[in-house]
Design a protein around this nucleic acid. Structure first.
Length: 319
DNA sequence: CGAAACATCCGCCACT
DNA sequence: GTAGTGGCGGATGTTT
């Protein structure tokens, strides 16, 4: 009766409790009130327990490395020591998982384990900012993006430090169960329902921002509440009382993207919401989201979400 | 789909 | 000298 999506988290001695906790919180806690069935969650390790965590207390993993072969998704939280080459047993299990198309997700320094296994080769990826140079130097065949919260490249998903793992896990929930479920879970976890999108190629996200009351903030909130209207960099800059050049520069500092890319993402995000919660025809939804035509909506929806609006609705609209 | 018209974005640099 | 601003040009991406 295992039609549940199986998430297996791989841990080793001196595992980082927070990174492990992120996976537990998202996949391990029963959320069947949001979507039934929720994930099946297993903690696996090559060593029998008890394993010491970085914080000193110890844990007992459920399974050995053999569990990796049954996983739909493998999560690798922070690896205690980036110098530590994982044993062949793990490397081979990860390679097999990659070949059969299982989803491989790393948080923080967990990316190094994927690197040792060779599954980052030819792919885009990221890790904690302290390690990005090291990762790029050690695995020259992969393309490390140091400036983003997480990167999705096919079935390989890597995230930056600690808290970025939450964003990535929520992104996974969003692709599996839709924006409604992901937002409800974010609310439940009391984290911002991070504005994300893509799976097709890649995702760029704001790195956690400090300043809230920039003049930009008001413009951003205004824009998301007026998505049905056309916007240009120039008009947004005017609203912020900045020159277009300065506006664009500040915009990147605050959001991590460019104004136009951000807008497209917001429009698509709104489209996702409307597709899930209303029965409006795609043509009308395109209008409501500020796309000049349904064709344009389809183009960006496909690029960012990786599927078509109607398919998305069919998958995620509650029965 | 592809081509032509149009907007955006980013390095560069002069200026405050 | 340092830090931020804003105009310009043209490669790149978007819309029609």
């Amino acid at each position: 009766m295992t039609d549940r999506h199986r998430v297996v988290t791989l841990v080793a001695d001196r595992v980082a409790p927070f990174e492990l906790g992120v996976a537990c919180e998202v996949f391990g806690v029963d959320r069947s009130y949001l979507h039934d069935p929720w994930y099946e969650f297993t903690v696996a390790s090559m060593d029998p327990g008890p394993l010491a965590t970085k914080a000193g207390f110890s844990i007992n993993p459920d399974r050995g490395v053999d569990a990796l072969d049954e996983a739909d998704t493998i999560v690798i939280p922070a690896w205690s020591d980036i110098e530590r080459v994982p044993p062949m047993e793990i490397v081979e299990a990860l390679q097999r998982a990659d070949e059969r198309g299982a989803r491989l997700l790393s948080v923080c320094s967990g990316a190094f384990v994927l690197g040792w296994a060779g599954v980052l080769d030819g792919r885009r990826c990221t890790t904690h900012w302290m390690y990005t140079d090291d990762l790029a130097a050690r695995f020259p065949a992969c393309q490390v993006d140091p400036g983003v919260l997480y990167v999705v490249d096919g079935n390989v998903l890597t995230s930056a430090g600690t808290a970025a793992g939450i964003d990535l896990c929520l992104h996974v929930v969003r692709t599996d169960h839709g924006a409604r479920v992901a937002n409800a879970l974010a609310r439940r976890m009391v984290v911002p329902p991070h504005r994300d999108g893509g799976q097709a190629q890649y995702v760029e996200m704001p790195v956690p921002d400090g300043e809230a009351d920039e003049p930009l903030g008001d413009v951003l909130t205004w824009a998301v509440t007026h998505l049905d209207e056309p916007h240009s960099v120039e008009s947004l800059a005017r609203r912020a009382h900045l020159s277009p050049r300065t506006f664009a520069r500040r915009f990147r500092q605050v959001t991590g993207t460019t104004p136009h890319q951000w807008l497209l993402r917001q429009r698509v995000l709104h489209a996702q919401h409307l597709l899930e919660t209303t029965g409006e025809p795609v043509e009308r939804i395109a209008q409501l989201c500020g796309f000049g035509s349904a064709a344009l909506l389809r183009q960006h929806f496909g690029r960012i979400v990786g599927t078509s609006p109607l398919l998305y609705r069919r998958t995620f609209q509650p029965a």
